[in-house]
Amino acid sequence: MGKIFRFHTDVDTDQIIASQYLLYPTVEEMKSHAFESLDADFAARVQPGDYVVAGENFGCGSSREQAPAVLKALGVRAVVAKSFARIFFRNAINIGLPVIVCKPLYDHVSQGEEMELSLDEGTVTVNGTVYPCTKLNPYMQTILNQGGLLASLNGGEESAWE
């Protein structure tokens, strides 16, 4: 179980991690500034295992991979949204951060509610209600299962490429 941090529609990458922090040498140094313009306390309050829930088009804007990376570094278990911008989506899978499309969830949950994610079942559960999620394409599922593209390439698996 983890807590829900709920954000709006069209959350862009500048809102996830602003450009002035991208020059910090490591993601560890950036992570305390995640979502700073939307919720200045986010990084202090989020606990490992918590979830980010959002509306449509989460992660639109820049190609900055630091956006999913700071969320992963803060221990966010998964981002569950109505839809994702494509570069954010690929980046998240490539670093092993689950990004889950769940159309019905967003309109029925609130900030702070407890949520459970089952990647195997492809569902999230909040307050006893089970919400079905959209499956990843097999290609991406393979990369995610192996812990990201780096792990996938280093694991000697050809599956990520052919």
């Binding site: 190609s63 991979e65 570069i87 690929r90 980046n91 670093i95 990201g148 390439l153």
Partner: peptide
């Protein structure tokens, strides 16, 4: 491919171009 979302620009000359993150660029 480019490490910037505005890599879509090169479609102006009929190329397929798109932005990606740094991990994919490394690969």
């Amino acid at each position: 491919f480019g490490t910037d979302s505005h890599t879509t620009t090169y479609g102006c000359v009929g190329a397929f171009s798109s932005g990606i993150g740094y991990t994919e660029m490394a690969s």
